Amino acid sequence: MAMKNLLGTGVFNWKGNSIKIRSELGALDALFQATGKDPLTLLQTATSQMEMAELFFHLQYDTAYTREEIYAGLFARLDDFLSEEFQMKLAKCLADCIGTELVEKLEPAEDTQKK
């Protein structure tokens, strides 16, 4: 019996550019070899444009974009990268890739205990 594929695929679209990423074992290993960082930790903690370009380069699925193409097409414009819309789309893509639920409310719940 063949194993079922449970890998999630994240799709990121921004201003006419699109890329799919997937957390396949070989791609995660290549990301580790390139960065020396645990790939799943990097997926959850990457914050810079360069880290994102490197991450997307190694995890891309069904494409063969260069690092430069990924950086220029998705991450080079700081004003885009810092926008709330961009960050929400990026968070959803990464969550889909690693199979986690996207937290809708990013702020912690208010403390309702009386002091």
Rank of each mutant, 00 (worst) to 15 (best):
S48L: 06
T112N: 03
D62M: 01
D79V: 04
S48I: 05
H58R: 08
T63G: 07
E107W: 08
F81C: 12
R67E: 14
L102V: 13
D80L: 03
I98C: 10
I70L: 15
D111A: 09
L28G: 00
M3K: 09
Q33F: 05
N5Y: 10
L43S: 12
K89P: 00
G73E: 01
F75Y: 11
M3R: 09
K4F: 13
F86V: 08
V103F: 04
Q33I: 09
M50N: 14
Q113F: 14
T112D: 04
Q49F: 07
N13H: 04
V11F: 00
K92E: 11
D96A: 09
A95G: 07
G8P: 05
P39Q: 07
E68A: 15
E24I: 10
Y71V: 10
A76Q: 07
L59V: 05
L74R: 03
I98D: 01
D96F: 04
D38I: 02
M3L: 11
S18G: 07
Q60G: 13
F86C: 05
S23W: 00
M50I: 09
Q113K: 12
T66N: 13
G99K: 02
Y71P: 11
A34G: 02
T100Q: 15
K4D: 14
K37D: 04
E101R: 06
L31H: 07
D29S: 08
R77K: 13
S48T: 15
L31R: 12
L102W: 00
W14E: 06
P108V: 03
L59E: 01
G99P: 06
T100F: 04
L90H: 09
D111L: 06
L7C: 03
F75C: 09
A76Y: 02
I21V: 11
L31S: 11
E101I: 14
E85R: 07
C93K: 02
Y71M: 04
W14V: 13
D80F: 08
A76R: 10
G73N: 12
P108T: 08
T112S: 06
I70H: 11
L6N: 10
A64T: 12
P39T: 05
T41H: 14
D29M: 08
F56D: 01
L25F: 11
